[in-house]
Design a protein around this nucleic acid. Sequence first.
DNA 1: TATATTTGTAAAGTTTTATTTACATAATGT
DNA 2: ACATTATGTAAATAAAACTTTACAAATATA
Lengths: 64, 64
Amino acid sequence: MKNKLKVLRAEHNLTQEQLANAVDVSRQTINAIEKEKFDPSLVLAIKLSRLFKTDIETIFTYEK
Amino acid sequence: MKNKLKVLRAEHNLTQEQLANAVDVSRQTINAIEKEKFDPSLVLAIKLSRLFKTDIETIFTYEK
DNA sequence: TATATTTGTAAAGTTTTATTTACATAATGT
DNA sequence: ACATTATGTAAATAAAACTTTACAAATATA
């Protein structure tokens, strides 16, 4: 799964730590998702999509 | 988190097993999600939303 | 250049999601 | 009533998401 987290975060001028705090996870979790080490849980994906006011699938794209 | 899986599945006339096969998980996983024992992964939520041709948040509603 | 901030990463541990096997109960069909 | 199909549930295990601590490297700023 690919994601546009890093770009969205940059557009919103947030550090990984600020974003982590905003969605209640650790900074390392944000970093790991940006680096595509793993996918977020559904709840975290929903929180991120709400924060960035966009659809989950605009941020996270799963092919096939 | 709440979900409308059971209703959607009924509307589409699918058994838990058929739905499980369609989205590549075990029948017990579908049952557990319907019974709200746990939330699906993001990938599974996406697969379900595609199968039922609706948004993730129409199926899964997370409050607050 | 020196300092502070931000990012990348790693290891060990916990929690959550999903699997397999198995069995009991409920519902449907003959 | 009996057999088949569908659902609920449980235990043990595996895999994935996430945490904490910690440190190195990159980037920005004084």
